[in-house]
């Protein structure tokens, strides 16, 4: 499907490239968008949003979330006692999440 879509859509770009006008006359046209001004500084700079913490958290809690699926998809076949480790797991993760959310919620330190 992915391959088909790529194979089907890449020609669109190529056709577009073929039939669209191409004029190299004006170098200003190819400058990056800077609201009509000549670009100043680099486009790719060391740019850190205050929300970097959320990406760090995502890496960890994404793992947690998908781990839960290993449990969730088998819960019908397991004894009820098998939920206890997950409760421990979730308890620990909640505590970590509380701390992480507190830290990431303080915008001035990021």
């Amino acid at each position: 499907m992915f391959g088909f879509a790529v194979a089907a859509m890449a020609p669109a770009l190529i056709i577009s490239r073929m039939i669209s006008p191409r004029k190299k006359s004006n170098p200003v046209k190819f400058l990056p968008m800077e609201c009509g001004q000549v670009p100043s500084g680099e486009g790719r700079t060391h740019f850190m949003m205050q929300y970097y913490a959320y990406i760090l958290m995502f890496v960890v809690f994404d793992v947690m979330a998908i781990f839960l699926y290993a449990w969730g998809s088998t819960i019908l076949e397991l004894p009820k006692s098998a939920t206890l480790p997950i409760i421990g797991f979730l308890g620990i993760m909640f505590a970590a999440m509380a701390f992480a959310l507190y830290q990431s919620g303080r915008r001035n330190i990021w």
Binding site: V60, W71, L78, M93, A96, F99
Partner: peptide
């Protein structure tokens, strides 16, 4: 695998949570 997690390896699962908690902290 899920059954493994919750029966045989369950202490490892708890430790896993501790690892994740420790690493995010």
């Amino acid at each position: 695998i899920g059954a493994d997690f919750l029966t045989y390896y369950w202490p490892a699962l708890i430790l896993m949570a501790l690892i994740l908690a420790g690493s995010v902290t």
